[in-house]
């Protein structure tokens, strides 16, 4: 009985508020991360040589530094040079840039898989480079990149748990506080883990829906 009261009175409200913070971290990070991925991936294939170098450098750094180190730099490091971010902003920036770096590689691969004839046909009709990219190349490439990028979004949901290391107390952070107070580590973290599992399941359901919705004959993902 005491346990149940603790569960419903303390654990659930705390975890739900943590979950809400997590969602506030994840959604913008997914949006900015995917946008960064598309932009960096596109520039690395079709950009001006200088922009190609810039995008390669971005990917190298943000895939190379551990995410936690990146978060520490955004939150603890930059104030040294007078740049201050709130914990949540620092976490969103860190997640977006890191996720974008990974996603850009899926986008790049997908862009390279588009046949050159598509480009020629668009140019022959009088499309400019930018219009070709926006109307012909990207709509095809993004369909191909979606499964990979979706995978990256699933990762992002889980590495959002690092936000509490820069004092943004989201789901994992709330769990940690509860667990240290009650010493019920196993129980609390089992619940926390299960909530992430639900989040990930919902996300993969949505991603699957999106794949089906965007699927076009000739571009279907051939599911076994």
């Amino acid at each position: 009985m005491k346990e149940l009261i603790y569960l419903f009175h303390d654990v659930f409200p705390a975890l739900m508020s943590g979950l809400w913070i997590s969602i506030q971290l994840i959604i913008p990070s997914v949006i900015f991360g995917a946008s960064m991925g598309i932009i960096a991936g596109t520039l690395s294939v079709y950009g001006h040589p200088l922009l190609k170098v810039a995008s390669k450098t971005y990917v190298t750094i943000f895939r190379g530094f551990p995410l936690l180190v990146q978060l520490y730099i955004w939150y603890f490091g930059l104030p040294r040079i007078g740049i201050y971010f709130s914990p949540m902003a620092a976490a969103i920036i860190g997640f977006s840039l890191c996720s974008g770096a990974y996603q850009s590689e899926y986008v790049r691969g997908a862009l390279l898989s588009i046949k050159k004839g598509q480009l020629l046909a668009a140019h022959a009709l009088g499309f400019s480079r930018t219009k070709t990219l926006l109307s012909v190349i990207l709509p095809q490439a993004l369909r191909r990149a979606l499964p990979g990028c979706g995978n990256e979004i699933i990762y992002l949901i889980k590495y959002s748990s690092l936000a509490y290391m820069v004092t943004c107390i989201e789901l994992t952070g709330k769990g940690k506080i509860l667990a240290s107070a009650s010493l019920k580590y196993t129980e609390i973290f089992m619940i926390v883990g299960a909530i992430y599992l639900v989040l990930v399941s919902v996300a993969s359901l949505l991603l699957n829906r999106m794949e089906t919705w965007l699927s076009v004959p000739g571009f279907e993902q051939h599911r076994a």
């Binding site: 598509q118 046909a121 009709l125 009088g126 109307s135 369909r143």
Partner: peptide, 30 residues
């Protein structure tokens, strides 16, 4: 280029668009 129509050996239709959209897209975007 708009005034010079080009037909390719391997068609090069835009794979993500219907036949109709393939014909429309140049009219709309270009």
């Amino acid at each position: 280029r708009q005034q010079v129509g080009m037909i390719f050996q391997d068609f090069n239709l835009f794979d993500h668009l219907t036949a109709l959209a393939n014909v429309e897209i140049g009219l709309i975007r270009v």
